[in-house]
Computed example of a mutant assay.
Amino acid sequence: MKLNICVDIDGTITEPYYWLDMANRHFGTDIKPYQVTTYDIHEVLKVSREAYNEFYNLYAETLHSKAEVRENAEIVLWKLNQQHNIFYVTAREQWIKKTTENWFVKNELPLAELHMLGSHYKVERAKQLECDIFIEDRYENAIQLALEGFQVLLVDCSYNRLPLLPGITRVRDWIDIYEEIETIYEKLNKAEARIA
């Protein structure tokens, strides 16, 4: 039995604050990672959503090209790719797809199916992919997915430290993620063996 594992990209595979230096330079701010207490970047920077969108549209390709990979993400993703089915499910829009694919190649990450939704709402895609586990950093996404019965691993960040619902497990890093997936997999195998 293989698990279907959906994996978000930004803040999950990438370092969560990779956009901060460029945003600080652009807006003349001096925000530190610990001050990022909401996922909505324009609120963190205290600028309008329009101003942030303008910045993002100008620099998205540079930002996403230079994003650093979280520690151990490469090793764990390759292991998961060998053992299970992985799908990258991101809110990024289609126009940034080539940049995203190039980033995966440059960082020697497994090339799994890439789903560019252009929206933070991921429940329907998780259903289509028959997702067993969803790895995510955005709190609101984790809540939506958990309410629909999905098992979510929420990667700890300064902007998602809010109360968790059943079905959401907070993980510190990619080693934690791998261990949680192994535990879930063992439980499912035991349950299957009992049914058989």
Rank of each mutant, 00 (worst) to 15 (best):
N102C: 12
L165I: 03
I96D: 12
E113G: 05
L147T: 09
E140Q: 12
E140V: 00
T100P: 00
D156A: 12
R92I: 05
D132L: 04
V155K: 06
E124H: 05
Q94D: 15
D137E: 11
F104I: 00
F104E: 06
F150N: 07
T99R: 03
V155N: 10
M116E: 04
G149F: 04
Y159G: 05
M116P: 07
L153A: 06
A112S: 04
N102E: 15
G149W: 03
D137P: 05
R125I: 13
N107C: 10
M116R: 02
T100D: 03
Q128G: 06
Y159E: 05
L145G: 09
E140G: 09
L164F: 07
F104S: 03
L117R: 03
I133C: 04
Y121L: 14
Q94N: 14
D132S: 01
P110W: 11
L154F: 10
E136Q: 07
L153W: 00
E130I: 04
Q128P: 00
R161S: 14
Y159L: 10
F104H: 03
V152R: 01
S119T: 14
A142K: 03
V105I: 12
V152L: 01
L154N: 06
I135R: 08
V105K: 11
Q94V: 14
Y121P: 01
R161L: 11
K127Y: 12
V105R: 10
A112M: 08
L114H: 10
S119W: 04
F104C: 07
L153H: 09
I135A: 10
V155W: 14
L162R: 10
E124A: 12
L145Q: 04
C131F: 02
A126T: 02
E148K: 00
D156C: 09
L111P: 00
K97D: 13
S119R: 00
Q151Y: 13
F134P: 10
G118P: 01
N141R: 09
K106G: 05
E140D: 15
N160T: 09
F134L: 12
Q94A: 15
K122E: 07
P163C: 03
A142E: 10
K98I: 13
E101F: 02
E140R: 04
I135F: 10
T100A: 01
Y159T: 07
A142C: 11
T100F: 05
T100G: 06
Y121Q: 13
S158F: 14
I143P: 06
S119I: 05
R92A: 14
G167R: 02
S158D: 15
W103G: 03
L153I: 09
A142S: 12
T100Q: 03
L109V: 03
F150H: 02
